[in-house]
Simulated scan of single mutants.
Amino acid sequence: MPDVDFRPVQVMIVDKDSNTRRLLRGILSRVGIDKITDFPNTTDVPAALLASPPDLLFIDADAAEPEGLRFVQNLRHAQQPHNPFLCIIAMTWQPTQPLMMRFTASGADDLMVKPFSAKQVQDRLTNLIDGRKGFVVTADYIGPDRRRQPREGIQIPLFNVPNSLRLKVTGLFDKARINDAVADALEAINVQKVVRGGFQLAFLADFAAPGASAGGDKMAADHLLRIGPVLDDLMRRLRPDSDLRPTLETYATTIRATLEAFKAAPDKPAGGMPALLAAAIGIAAATSRRSNIGVVEQEVRGAVTSYRNRLAEIAQAKAAPAAAAAPAGAPAEKEVEARG
């Protein structure tokens, strides 16, 4: 790490445990950080983020439902007025698999397991200053790149987002320049979010279409209902003066009409699915600036096929232990049905 001065750094701590807040304050003060605010929950945090924007946020990942990680995810997806790129370290007593999955999806930079030492905190600071990962953007994720290896055939760009923590400790911080950098990063991420959102719309529609048209398919219904929030986010992020807006508004009207009809009678087969699917594919093609809708449709269909195959593999893996535990000589379920 280069020569650093932690005195200009502002830190926020959100944790229900007063001992954790006190411990962190002591550790941070020993490295020279004294601009620290702390809260027992996230209730007052949005106002505090505006009044005194922090460079680093420590947040409890064990809060109910989980309040802390959901707050992080919402913060990363915010367009204004907060800086969604501040460094974030989540904290937990028990890194269970469900919690790790929520942490991974939240967009936080790092995770510390309690009780932690001063060295662990200092190591996290060093990583964020010297080796913070670039951000990736998908339809439902904004945050540091956690991929060990990028998926074959899928090109997701990396974004070097503003890091006010590094700028302050190295004496390079300028408020006007950081505000411009945040605005530029938000614009680039919005463009990518619109592209990824368009593909996600088409993916959800293609996956849901067969089951929703037939009716009675809960998984298809769940995927169909996810289209609404993705569409709303896409349209919210689209610039008001975008040349795509008239076309996308037309497609969006078709999609929303089909969704509203389905919500009114969720137990019945969904009508209008061909029109919804065509509109979703149209949005995917328009947002990716490609005129060949057939190629876009093939890409979507390929992604859906891969997803269905993964679901089948998961179901098969879950069924294997039950089959192995069946009494010796007992006929398989399909054999019983055939004989019945």
Score class of each variant (00 low, 15 high):
residue 338 A to K: 15
residue 36 I to H: 09
residue 192 Q to F: 11
residue 91 M to T: 09
residue 167 L to D: 14
residue 151 R to K: 14
residue 263 K to V: 13
residue 339 R to K: 14
residue 253 T to G: 10
residue 223 H to N: 09
residue 97 Q to Y: 12
residue 124 R to K: 14
residue 137 V to E: 00
residue 5 D to K: 03
residue 266 P to S: 06
residue 45 V to A: 03
residue 146 R to Y: 10
residue 277 L to G: 03
residue 75 L to M: 10
residue 177 R to D: 10
residue 298 Q to Y: 07
residue 67 E to Q: 07
residue 42 T to Q: 07
residue 88 I to Y: 00
residue 261 A to Q: 15
residue 56 L to D: 02
residue 99 L to K: 05
residue 116 F to Q: 01
residue 215 G to L: 03
residue 25 R to A: 03
residue 60 D to W: 00
residue 26 G to P: 01
residue 227 I to N: 00
residue 75 L to Q: 03
residue 88 I to K: 01
residue 134 G to A: 14
residue 56 L to R: 01
residue 78 A to L: 06
residue 327 P to Q: 05
residue 277 L to H: 11
residue 73 Q to E: 13
residue 262 F to T: 09
residue 185 A to K: 04
residue 120 Q to P: 02
residue 225 L to I: 04
residue 221 A to L: 15
residue 208 A to D: 00
residue 309 N to W: 13
residue 327 P to E: 06
residue 171 G to S: 10
residue 150 P to N: 05
residue 179 N to D: 15
residue 245 R to T: 09
residue 222 D to F: 08
residue 29 S to L: 08
residue 5 D to C: 06
residue 284 A to E: 09
residue 301 R to T: 11
residue 146 R to F: 11
residue 116 F to N: 00
residue 253 T to P: 04
residue 140 D to C: 07
residue 147 R to D: 05
residue 308 R to G: 12
residue 148 R to C: 01
residue 89 I to S: 01
residue 336 V to G: 06
residue 44 D to G: 10
residue 161 V to I: 10
residue 139 A to V: 04
residue 82 H to M: 07
residue 52 S to I: 08
residue 73 Q to N: 14
residue 207 F to I: 00
residue 239 R to W: 13
residue 99 L to C: 08
residue 95 P to L: 09
residue 325 A to C: 06
residue 165 L to I: 02
residue 275 A to H: 08
residue 129 I to K: 02
residue 180 D to Q: 15
residue 186 L to P: 00
residue 161 V to N: 03
residue 157 P to W: 07
residue 336 V to P: 04
residue 100 M to S: 07
residue 21 R to D: 05
residue 120 Q to V: 12
residue 160 N to R: 13
residue 340 G to P: 02
residue 240 P to A: 12
residue 164 S to Y: 02
residue 180 D to C: 08
residue 37 T to H: 13
residue 116 F to I: 01
residue 233 D to Q: 11
residue 86 L to W: 05
residue 108 A to D: 02
residue 99 L to H: 06
residue 309 N to I: 13
residue 301 R to Q: 14
residue 275 A to I: 08
residue 145 D to I: 06
residue 331 P to G: 07
residue 4 V to W: 05
residue 10 Q to V: 12
residue 90 A to N: 00
residue 206 D to Q: 11
residue 143 G to K: 00
residue 63 A to F: 03
residue 216 G to K: 00
residue 298 Q to P: 03
residue 307 Y to Q: 06
residue 202 A to V: 05
residue 263 K to H: 13
residue 264 A to N: 12
residue 274 P to R: 03
residue 132 R to H: 12
residue 94 Q to L: 14
residue 25 R to W: 04
residue 272 G to V: 06
residue 61 A to M: 06
residue 120 Q to R: 12
residue 289 R to I: 09
